[in-house]
């Protein structure tokens, strides 16, 4: 025999699952939403997304190579591309390129690489980038173009989003303001103002189903978030019609994107099914609280980031039920 026998401990076979398979799987699940964003926002969406992805990949490459000086550059694993797409999805389609690049630098540099790279970041990098931009550039980050302007980029016509309408109704304490909301079908398809990837709930749900079928994620986080938001906003709506109907709340803003793609981020979500349910419910509650009572119209990103911070604690206390813990006799 020419070569030496290899000796290792069992198991000797592997399921052929890989980081790449999962990362590119999520990217693939984002394709319907990507198509929807191009349909609704045209060239603006293309510029924002391309800038965001390229900038994220570049910063990851540059930081691993020149600052961390690692031998192996990890841009091939797909996580930087994913962060780039998700960051882009969270931005309005008329955002200037330089702001996007700053966002990408914060997302990859501060959100991810300072902690050691993939797998070590406590907070979702794309959301770190988005929230940084939201606080630093509130005006640019909160003027969303209306859909259907295929060829405009920076100078697109803007309008209030459904979330802004809901906030206005609460402030004015007048349910009739809510009549300005687009109808539910338009909101489901994405015929409304908003960040470029979050508008089409339908496309995002198709992506979610794809991820569930391919077993990239489990149902616990998205279902618990959506259910919690639905129930809570439903109760509020019954209590006082000035609060928007639960369907409108579910379909508006970044809720769908957050529940399906941001909160389910592997690195920053809890490890056990029980923990994931706690995490999902808490995100749902926080989102509704911020949307209804907070200063910002949108609370999804803050809710996720807050719960990211609680993830280690959830991991410590929510243990899976051990085999044989309860003896059935």
């Amino acid at each position: 025999m020419a070569n030496k026998l290899i000796v290792s401990l069992s198991p000797h076979v592997h399921g052929h699952d890989s980081v790449q398979r999962n990362m590119y799987g999520v990217c693939l699940a984002l394709v319907p939403a990507l198509i929807a964003s191009l349909v609704f926002f045209g060239v603006g969406a293309l510029i924002v997304l391309a800038t965001s992805v390229l900038a994220c990949v570049f910063f990851e490459w540059a930081i691993t190579k020149y600052i961390l000086r690692r031998d192996k550059v990890t841009i091939g694993d797909g996580s930087a591309i994913l962060t780039g797409i998700l960051l882009g999805f969270n931005l309005p389609s008329n955002l200037p390129i330089w702001i996007i690049i700053i966002g990408a630098l914060v997302a990859i540099g501060i959100g991810k690489m300072t902690f050691g790279g993939l797998g070590c970041n406590p907070f979702n990098p794309a959301l770190v980038g988005r929230v940084f931009l939201l606080i630093s550039f509130p005006v640019q980050m909160t003027t969303w173009p209306v859909t259907g302007q295929m060829t405009t980029y920076l100078d697109g016509e803007t309008a209030a989003t459904p979330l802004a309408v809901m906030k206005e109704a609460i402030k004015a304490n007048d349910p009739s303001v809510l009549e300005k909301l687009p109808d539910s079908l338009d909101m489901l398809i994405g015929q409304m103002g908003g960040s470029l990837g979050e508008v089409s709930a339908l496309a995002l749900l198709i992506g979610l189903v794809y991820m569930l079928v391919r077993k990239i994620i489990t149902w616990h986080i998205p279902v618990s978030i959506l259910l919690t938001v639905f129930v809570l906003s439903g109760l509020l709506h019954l209590y006082n019609p000035v609060y928007a109907s639960p369907v409108a709340v579910l379909l508006s803003g970044g809720l769908m994107l957050g529940a399906c793609f941001m909160a389910t981020d592997y690195v920053t979500s809890p490890m056990t099914a029980k923990g994931q349910l706690v995490y999902g419910v808490a995100i749902g509650v926080l989102t509704v609280v911020i949307r209804t009572f907070g200063a910002y119209p949108e609370g999804m990103s803050f809710a996720i980031l807050i719960m990211n911070g609680f993830t280690p604690l959830i991991n410590t206390y929510c243990k899976p039920k051990r085999f044989g813990e309860v003896i059935k006799k």
Binding site: I6, S8, L9
Partner: peptide, 22 residues
């Protein structure tokens, strides 16, 4: 002479569990 090749965590205690090591 190394008679086999050890594939796994570079730890003596792990290598020991495979038998006599490399």
């Amino acid at each position: 002479p190394r008679v086999v090749e050890f594939d796994g965590v570079r730890s003596c205690r792990v290598a020991l569990m495979t038998g006599t090591g490399e």
